[in-house]
Design a protein around this nucleic acid. Structure first.
Lengths: 348, 348
DNA sequence: GATTAGCACTCTATCCTATCGAGTGCCAAC
DNA sequence: GTTGGCACTCGATAGGATAGAGTGCTAATC
């Protein structure tokens, strides 16, 4: 059954009021606050239907209504209108995202921090998914006998490195040879097409004794694989403690406990990203129970995708209470994402 | 006035009981729990004196006593006895500090994580203070026109790098020349003796046009300076939410708010380290109001110093409620510190 | 002088009860 | 379909009584 116009307005009003007051909203206060041209009794009927449809619910029998997850979902999908940020807000964000950094990573951390400050919630960003980027350079530098540094420059302007152990006997010259061979043969290959086999065959013909060579190649391979590992940056966890939504210590603890396992959060974001279907949606929004992470039942999870290059992207977004100003938060994320896209052009 | 023996025992017992029960302890329960050979009235007299001396205090008139900051201090300084961890606990920690990592940083993060798990509190570690370590290698790698990577290998086995911007026109060969000159002239110099002037004079005579050269040298200098910047690793903030000591949301928020500014915490640890006088104390302990960070009035801050080399060290420790099992926590920190010292020998 | 028993007093925590008020559902009338 | 009216529900709040743990003080005792 589709919602008639007034029911849409009622749901809209309930969400708005609940978000701003944090109190269950009743028919009477709805009338007071909004210009409905009907009586409270009529609204009560509408509200009963909305409840029947699962869009709103009562905390207890004699209380007002609050939006259910489904209600927020409806609100987000069809009811709300997104406004641009005010010039002042825009400026505030622009100012804080410092464009003088030298590495993409710093830029992303910067944006995450800014987003958390702007929204007052937890913000998070995933590092760029580098599987589709390709090797532009790979150098193995001898640090000391038995130890070397693998430095990789990827398309997308990202530099990665890893300290690895190598056989003690290998000379500087031998390492350079191997390094050169790998670079020559793997140059231009996307990371996700590089396997241990590829690396091993790339290293052939360097006139280094087989078992030694093999170990170095393995380490080089491991370094390359590590380069496309995802990192997550989380910011502002403590801000959740100030929200009435998490005033019960138990909820707060569960939430922060889950967020402290950043690997798990990263995995979830990744999963969300992969299950994205139509792909024309620029935002991924998960509300309440839609989130399969423990302790986030009262949260909404909103992310956007930033693009470093055509094929290399990552996510940035917010975890806040589901009782949030969706339109505002979404435009904040959107603005930060766009700023990020813009700044990233300096790195490619 | 020095404490007579029984008063010491009374204070000891009060701290022990309060730590384990989280309830103000009264004369009667003190008698029940411990084998004092006197009556509760006598203990009441003692307690009145201890209170007069500022070692214990009453939350309200008709409640038991809790230790004051000064009381905890007395306890920590003169009363408690430190026991070794049980073999089982030792094994638990040994097991978790993975020795297969390739970089000191990972080892330290690892230890921090382990310490937080073992104590149930917030743990933290400072990166090694590298000012006294010296340059073993410095290479500038061309990434692309206008962009280079400065890679530094320091004594103490630490590798640092930084992406820097360089003039677009510089060729690979020119960069290598500069890189070689810096390395040759600064090799073996402790980081804190390297200034912009040192770097500039090291780069002389490379036959690269003056203004271009100067920019590269400046960037190299900045990279070197960045290498000895201190990092701090904080872990387990969420664990504080489970403690009854922070069951009031306000306190919890203040605490986590302060901890979220890791730079500030790092500064404080550094300050503590610098103000260390006798230097024969292996632990730095700050209790309650002794800590000048906002929101940590109910906490104690305990750190030990780990050593990477003779001249390069850092700190590792715990922030917990001042109502903590000091002897246990101290031996946990001590054990982790020693394990760290041992593992670090693999890196130098 | 130190220790002890006894006692009056204090203050919090807890439970119970009464009351208030916002909100609901439903019905009959418009 | 809309509205006014009304009985009912239930959480939140406040007041009051009570229990209990603990204290300080005094006078007697070792």
């Amino acid at each position: 059954m589709p919602l008639d116009n007034r029911k849409k307005e009622v749901l809209h009003a309930i969400v708005d009021d609940y978000v701003s007051t944090n109190e269950p909203v009743g028919s009477k206060s709805l009338i007071e606050r909004h210009n409905f041209q009907v009586s409270s009794a009529t609204l009560r009927n509408d509200m009963a239907e909305l409840e029947h449809m699962g869009l709103i619910e009562k905390p207890h029998t004699s209380a007002g209504r609050i939006p259910s997850d489904k209600g927020y979902r409806e609100y987000v999908n069809s009811l709300m209108t997104i406004e641009e940020l005010s010039p002042k807000e825009q400026l505030e964000i622009e100012k804080r995202i410092d464009s003088s950094v030298n590495e993409v990573t710093d830029l992303i951390k910067n944006a995450t921090h800014t987003l958390s400050e702007a929204t007052g919630f937890v913000s998070l960003a995933m590092s760029p998914r580098l599987k589709k980027s390709f090797l532009k350079q790979l150098k193995i530098l001898m640090i000391e006998p038995g130890k070397a540094l693998v430095v990789m420059v990827l398309s997308a302007g990202v530099v990665k490195d890893k300290v690895v152990r190598i056989p003690n006997f290998l000379s500087d010259a031998q390492i350079m040879k191997i390094s050169g061979a790998i670079e020559k043969n793997l140059m231009g290959k996307p990371l996700d097409e590089i396997t241990l086999v590829t690396v091993e065959s790339a290293g052939k013909g360097t006139a280094v004794p087989e078992p030694l060579l093999k170990q170095v190649l393995y380490e080089a391979y491991a370094a390359i694989k590590q380069a496309d590992e995802l990192n997550i940056y989380l910011e502002g966890e403590h801000r959740m403690l100030g929200l009435p939504d998490f005033s019960s210590m138990g909820r707060a603890r569960d939430l922060l406990g889950t967020l402290s396992d950043s690997g798990m959060v990263a995995g979830y974001v990744n999963e969300m990203e992969n299950s994205k279907q139509g792909a024309d949606d620029s935002f991924m929004i998960r509300i309440g129970q839609e989130i399969t992470l423990e302790g986030l039942d009262d949260c909404s999870f909103i992310t956007a995708t930033y693009n470093l290059t055509d094929s290399v992207s990552g996510n940035i977004g917010v975890i806040g209470p589901k009782r949030m100003l969706y339109s505002k938060v979404i435009s904040q994320i959107d603005f930060v994402k766009k700023k990020l896209d813009k700044e990233m052009r300096n790195f490619i």
